[in-house]
Design a protein around this nucleic acid. Structure first.
Length: 255
DNA sequence: ATGCCTAGTGATACTAGA
């Protein structure tokens, strides 16, 4: 079973690239982030033509998340609990087969410090509370998405330039470590502990050609799932396609 | 230190992304 996550940076601007990648990579489950479309503007028919049933949570202008699968995902929740005032579409959770799939788009948080960074830290705390419940229940779960967190200095092309950035600030990295310590494993790093792996290259500064990237898209496996991990990778060539997202798809294969 | 690019909105300039 192949599970992927892909920040598309607009589902409608990305549709040709998404369809081409789905046909080539043939994942069983896909978590999408940054739909940048209201609920009614999700291209459901085109996704069906590609062979996937989808649930999604749209929003005007920004954010928006979706889960695609061969059979219709059974929705469990469409918001992260813990803040009734949070109107961002950044979390969607569903049952697919024997797995719970959490699709997340964690806030960017820049500039830091500031209200956006505070929102990011609060969002991470809520994610940790929810993730702890999944672990406590022994749920076989995958939390996949754009975390907007560079976990370590090995996950960024030039760490000294990112020290004050909301993606790399010490408190954000610490929160990610605390999340893993609950019993989640970072699938890409588990199978490729030393490799230089990036999932995002800025549109600026010819970043992809220079391989000036970041690893910020992650698939976290609960204890019940981790032993099933067989392969993991980044479809980085997709970032080089015409009209690509600034992120590349990231995938795992489970028994 | 700044803008470099891309997308959405809705009006031709701004916000936001990371």
């Amino acid at each position: 079973m192949k599970i992927a996550t892909y920040n598309v940076n607009s589902i409608n601007a990305r549709l040709p690239v998404l369809q081409r990648w789905l046909a080539q990579s043939r994942p069983d489950v896909v978590c999408l982030q940054e739909l940048k479309a209201v609920q009614a503007n999700f291209p459901d028919a085109a996704i069906r033509d590609s062979g996937y049933a989808a649930i999604w949570h749209g929003q005007k202008s920004w954010n928006g998340v979706a889960i695609l699968a061969r059979e219709l995902p059974l929705e469990r929740r469409r918001v992260l609990p813990g803040d009734p005032d949070d109107a961002h579409s950044r979390y969607l959770e569903a049952t697919v087969g024997d797995l719970v799939i959490g699709c997340l788009y964690l806030p960017n948080g820049n500039p830091a410090p500031g209200p956006k960074f505070d929102y990011k830290l609060g969002w991470i705390e809520r994610l940790k509370r929810h993730a702890a419940e999944l672990i406590a229940a022994g749920t076989p779960a995958v939390l996949a998405g754009d975390y907007n967190i560079i976990p370590t200095e090995h996950d960024v092309y030039k760490p000294e330039r990112w020290l004050d950035d909301a993606l790399f600030r010490p408190e954000v990295r610490a929160a990610y470590r605390e999340l893993l310590a609950q019993g989640w494993s970072d699938a890409l790093r588990t199978l490729h502990p030393e490799e230089r792996i990036f999932t995002f290259w800025d549109y600026f500064r010819n970043a992809y050609a220079r391989d000036a990237g970041l690893r910020i898209d992650h698939l976290l496996l609960s204890r019940a799932v981790a032993p099933r991990l067989r392969a993991a990778g980044v479809d980085r060539e997709v970032r080089g396609w015409e009209k690509s997202s600034d992120h590349a798809p990231v995938w795992i294969e489970l028994d």
